[in-house]
């Protein structure tokens, strides 16, 4: 397996407050990783360290084999980045910023730029400060893809986009990046977008990585089991590994499972029961449960 992104023990604090703590994470080349967390969880800080825009207190990493602390210029050349807040020179026109940016790169795909300027109907002579928020995001995506990066890093890219524009935005990423075998790091609290396109999901809360798993694995194994037993089962049942929470109402139990679903089901079925339901969990339910569970610990 080839890793496009390798992060190892990234740590950063601001004025004594821990922002990111010992974060290690690998992203497979050619895949889409969804990076999920609440506002202030440490997503943007992680991204800035990853791109060499912020120096970690400790830890490090590599993007496409280049060190994020020692070779950040080489990293930036191979990465496209759409920041959460678009900081583009407002006095420049769309054309001017494109010409300005191209000096920094040896590769520059003018055909792609033209295609998407037309597609989004972006007025090339308009000053950036006069563009709508959505248009600025679209322009930022074009700028991020223009040098044909191997890795695309997106920090809350869909803020400011309406549902139709959001769908278009995702489709372009699938077409221009994913289908070309390139890697996407998608940080978002737009769970719906992540749920559609991510191969893997990483959950971050209060600066710490809670879990990294494939979306398919999450949806296959994170479940709730509602079971009504005929008589009381042994309490050892609930100490099975993978069970995160058990609540009880009369003879009915609601068992939250995070791993080992098959094993747990096999154990449950050893006791006679009246009904047994497995309740599927979507990404939003899984996300909320994870963050809530982390707070309780």
């Amino acid at each position: 397996m080839t890793w496009a992104i390798e992060l190892d023990g990234l740590t950063k604090s601001f004025r004594g407050k821990m922002a990111v703590e010992n974060l290690s994470l690998n992203v497979e080349a050619g895949s889409i990783l969804g990076f999920l967390g609440q506002n202030g969880a440490g997503k943007t800080t992680t991204i800035k360290m990853m791109l060499g825009l912020l120096r970690p207190d400790s830890g490090g990493g590599r993007i496409l084999g280049k060190s994020i602390t020692g070779e950040s210029l080489q990293v930036l050349r191979k990465v496209g980045y759409v920041a959460e807040v678009q900081q583009m020179y407002g006095y420049m026109s769309v054309n001017e910023i494109l010409n300005f940016s191209r000096q920094f790169y040896s590769r520059w795909n003018s055909a792609l730029i033209k295609r998407y300027l037309d597609f989004f109907s972006l007025p090339s002579k308009e000053k950036i400060k006069n563009l709508s928020k959505g248009m600025k995001t679209q322009l930022a995506l074009i700028l991020a893809m223009a040098h044909e990066p191997e890795v695309l890093v997106l920090d809350e890219p869909s803020s400011g986009l309406d549902p139709i524009n959001r769908q278009e935005f995702l489709r372009i990423i699938l077409d221009e990046i994913s289908l070309q075998g390139k890697t996407v790091f998608l940080s978002s609290h737009q769970l719906h977008d992540v749920e559609r396109v991510a191969d893997k999901v990483a959950f971050i809360n209060q600066g710490r990585l809670l879990d990294v798993r494939s979306m398919d694995n999450l949806k296959t194994t994170v479940k709730k089991i509602r079971v009504v037993f005929q008589r009381e089962p042994g309490s050892s049942l609930f100490s099975q590994p993978g069970i995160t929470e058990v609540s009880r109402e009369g003879s009915a139990y609601l068992i939250a499972v995070e791993e080992n679903l098959e094993g747990i089901l096999a154990e449950i079925k050893k006791y006679p029961y009246f009904t047994l339901d497995i309740i599927d969990q979507n990404l939003e339910e899984i996300f909320i449960e994870k963050v809530r569970g982390d707070r309780h610990e």
Binding site: L170, R171, L174, S178, D199
Partner: peptide, 14 residues
């Protein structure tokens, strides 16, 4: 793969 991934807006790997 490409056509279906784009039509459904889902990951081509899927």
């Amino acid at each position: 793969v490409r056509e279906l991934a784009l039509r459904l807006t889902i990951n081509p790997n899927t």
